[in-house]
Write a protein that binds this DNA or RNA. Structure first.
Lengths: 343, 343
DNA sequence: CTGAAAGCGCTTACAG
DNA sequence: CTGAAAGCGCTTACAG
């Protein structure tokens, strides 16, 4: 609580400390960085001066001069931190980064390629040691300059295009196939699909998985039962209302993203059909098990994905070298009730 | 996709660009920063060299030398990004920061004061232009050095102690009082309290609000109906089981935090009591309206809180000056069903 | 309109 | 064990 004698309006520098302790700047640097070969007396003098001035080393300046140029900061580009999937990814990365004494610059892109580039440009300009990206763009060739310059880049959730990098991905197609197969196994032949923007590759993969599962059982997909480009809860809700208004409505729904699933549930509830129309969602979400009926989902493991993505960055920073690889993370079907409703 | 002629293993510098364009570094600097007074010819030469080298300005170095020393980066210290409350706060701050061309360094403290200090130290060492903090510590006097040095600091969700800063807060006590008053108005006289760690000031405030509401109606609080220090879902779940096992169990519950509310719901479900025991939770959470019964809550507005907190930082950075103030954000009781169950 | 010199806060590479 | 000089990548403050 005692006010510290900091230079008014500015912060003390290493030179201020050196002057007060009556040593050279280099000696202060040695003390600050815990380098050996400084007498106890000088260490004490420097430490006292640091305390007195409230000196805080300028890490930014030191990394500018330091041999490896590392900033102990990585950049994380997410879809939307407010979405629990992104939030879980981020939290897992943060935990790994903390173990390495590394801070995180993060931002959300909301499916906007321009925002993705702006964030990466801002992070690269701040000399991040690595980048973890869940891309919204269709091609990330612009990252090649960074990669050539030696910055490790890892993609998460979405595959790279135009660039060779490690990627932590799930198999969206087979996950979706499993979901729809589950519905078929419970007797459904007319299954509606409601999915995210078709500009998103993972959304297209999930639709393909849906088609695969139908083809497996020689069920002809009905175009009117397939609704793409639903990115929000309310857009999905409307889509489900429309599906149920069809002359031949589906008896089951596969909803290919967490917000879409929630929108679908709202529509089913509004019609009192939640116990008569089966539902399997892609992506788990908090409280899915507490709804009535509990929601069957194909769960991803965002914590595992985030941990692995961050670990890959740090392995490369620690000198690890390997060809850029796809690192698959398995999905898991969790039957809870909504997916086991029979037609 | 075409590989750029970047110096192998390193990035091009402003000097590299200057050499290639055959101008002085200062001229490159002018072009990069869009300063006026450069001939079209030189601009073209510099731009071509930048493209050829894949040059990206080192923003870190420029802010070291730049007059105001700004890094266009702020630090955000949250409770836990994976909690939807923190995630919503963060997202709102991010949106404001983006409008100002500012990046965010963020981290979670998980109620650990040491982590709080470590994060702030890391962010300050990276020369952030401002700090937004949801503190876990009981005293933040250590921030005074930063504040004296001119870094704007804003607290959010939790009040400052030992330091004079702006704070964006809700009135936890009166919010809790309103919640419990609501239960009393619906006929309850024995109301259980389940709350977060008593080390958290807002948890203590909410308990006080609970006591206030009982006192208002001259209801004697029963110590055995008050359970503190429940920080996780499962801890809260256990607590509710224990409450309902009492000889005289409460007919209603006030759960003073979002995870605690969810844990309580799990316990009520497990016993099939969700329609017979009333429940009001503090903090809204996604899907609260889709549960059965829908959950009555006292809602905070984390988006409004985050936006305001970030705006305050930028107003100060833009030269605004005022005495550090508490900025109250109202809470709102949302009756949905669980809180209107009668004894 | 353009550039040479100095310096932001720190570390490197030496010398003693 | 200690420090003087130079330099990280850039901008400032001048001079022309």
């Amino acid at each position: 609580m005692e006010p510290r004698p900091v230079p008014p309006g500015g912060r003390a520098t290493l030179r201020d400390v050196a002057r007060l302790a009556d040593v050279s700047p280099k000696t202060v640097s040695r003390v600050v960085n815990g380098e050996p070969g400084v007498t106890e007396a000088k260490i004490a003098a420097v430490t006292a001066a640091i305390d007195k001035l409230g000196y805080r080393p300028n890490f930014t300046a030191s990394s500018l001069r330091r041999a490896n140029g590392r900033t102990a900061t990585i950049g994380v580009v997410l879809e939307d931190v407010a979405n629990p999937f992104s939030a879980a990814l981020y939290r897992a990365m943060e935990d790994v980064a903390r173990e390495h004494g590394v801070s995180i610059l993060a931002g959300s892109v909301d499916e906007d390629p321009a925002r993705e580039r702006a964030l990466i440009s801002a992070f690269a300009g701040r000399q991040v040691d690595g980048l973890i990206v869940a891309p919204a763009s269709t091609n990330q060739g612009y990252l090649n300059a960074e990669i050539l310059a030696g910055t490790p880049v890892v993609f998460v959730d979405r595959a790279p295009a135009g660039v060779q990098v490690d990627a932590v991905l799930i198999d969206n197609r087979s996950g979706a196939r499993e979901a729809v197969r589950h519905l078929i196994a419970h007797g459904h032949r007319t299954i509606g699909y409601v999915g995210d923007l078709r500009t998103i590759a993972t959304a297209r993969d999930r639709l393909q998985g849906y088609r695969d599962a139908l083809a497996d059982e020689a069920i002809r997909p009905r175009p009117e039962h397939i609704v793409e480009d639903r990115h929000t809860e309310s857009a999905a809700e409307q889509a489900v209302h429309a599906l149920l208004d069809l002359p031949e409505p589906p008896t089951a729904l596969f909803t290919a993203q967490n917000l879409v699933t929630i929108g679908a549930i709202r529509a089913l509830r509004a019609r009192g059909r939640q116990h008569s129309i089966a539902l399997v969602g892609f992506d788990d979400f908090p409280l899915a098990d507490l709804l009535d009926p509990p929601v069957t989902v194909v769960a991803q493991d965002p914590s595992a994905m985030g941990r692995l993505a961050a670990s890959l960055i740090f392995r490369r920073l620690d000198g690890g070298s390997w060809e850029p690889t796809i690192h698959p993370i398995p999905t898991r079907l969790i039957p809870r009730g909504s997916g086991e409703i029979r037609p």
